[in-house]
């Protein structure tokens, strides 16, 4: 038995003629916090639903702890916590009724005290009905319900979409609390890149259903770099720059983003064309935007990180 909690093998999903996912190969090792990044409609939610067996693939397969996703045994499901955006819970129930309902499914794992502590922390009374709660409060209840069941694998699909910064922070705290325990794995997708940077060990970037990067967060941060060049004349041979994925030119100035190009090669290229060069710092957001950037960039370079 290998050390992977989640694996997908050429996972493909077509909706009519449109590929939502195209031969996706993912491996999530045990104990990893794995961030799924991608623009809206890139296929992250589809991937997660396929992994959990909530959708059937068009081709390929997915496995959770060695079990095929389309037939996950119920006992395995009790070890998986699943939170999705929207946090849709039964609206007629009170928080306490929800707790009793949930507890019945996890008789050995349920952490009553932790649930009570979380409700306290969120300042939510157990007597409140779900329909009286705001979106953020419902998300908090959902988080408490999921974490109190002590899951070994936590899967979250953009849980903080549309929620305020305080609730986003609480979700992060919940994740950090969970990772501290032995042998827990988290797979999550988020559009808040600074949050991903805080907690992810590894990230995967999915773009239009295709995996474009699958590496540690550090590698991603280190390997996408931007430089500002000043050339002696406006005629700039941009295409010869190794590893180019994005560029902006203004007469003699060129701002270029490269991927996986050693620093010496950049300085060498600049020297060859008598250009002055200066590194431009990039935030993870800048890196993500330019990496999943406009079509021209992708035509130039189709890049996959080594695993």
């Amino acid at each position: 038995m290998n050390d992977f909690v989640l694996q997908t093998f050429q996972l493909t999903k077509y909706y009519h003629k449109t590929p939502a996912l195209d031969h996706l190969n993912l491996c999530v090792p045990k104990g990893c916090v794995y961030g799924l990044l991608g623009r809206n409609g890139s296929g992250k939610t589809t991937a997660i639903k396929l992994i959990l067996g909530l959708l059937a693939p068009t081709a390929g397969r997915a496995e959770v702890v060695g079990h095929p996703s389309d037939n996950l045994p119920p006992s395995l499901r009790s070890r998986i916590g699943y939170i999705t955006e929207g946090h849709h819970l039964e609206r007629w129930m009170t928080i306490r009724e929800l707790e009793h309902f949930q507890k019945a499914f996890y008789p050995d794992q349920w952490d009553r005290r932790f649930f009570a502590e979380m409700l306290d922390y969120f300042e939510l009374s157990p007597k409140r009905k779900i329909k009286t709660l705001s979106n953020g409060q419902r998300a908090q209840v959902n988080l408490a319900l999921t974490l109190a069941a002590n899951p070994e694998l936590l899967i979250m699909d953009d849980p903080t979409l549309g929620l305020d910064a305080a609730v986003c922070r609480q979700f992060l705290e919940g994740m950090v609390h969970l990772i501290q325990k032995e042998g827990r794995t988290i797979l999550f997708s988020s559009h808040i890149l600074s949050d991903v940077e805080r907690v992810a060990d590894r990230i995967a970037v999915i773009d239009k259903g295709v995996l474009r990067a699958d590496c540690t967060l550090e590698e991603f941060r280190m390997q996408i770099r931007k430089y500002l060049f000043e050339f002696p004349q406006p005629n700039i041979p941009v295409d010869t720059l190794p590893g180019l994925i994005h560029s902006k030119q203004n007469q003699q100035m060129l701002e270029a983003t490269v991927v996986k190009t050693p620093e010496e090669a950049i300085y060498e290229w600049a020297r060859r064309h008598q250009a002055a060069v200066e590194p431009v710092p990039m935030s993870i957001e800048d890196q993500f935007i330019e990496f999943t950037g406009p079509k021209q960039a992708q035509k130039l370079f189709s890049w996959e990180m080594p695993v």
Binding site: L54, P74, S75, R77, I80, Y82, H88, L89, F105, Y106
Partner: peptide, 8 residues
Amino acid sequence: AFLLHRNI
């Protein structure tokens, strides 16, 4: 999803 993602 709330109802069906359970150990049942």
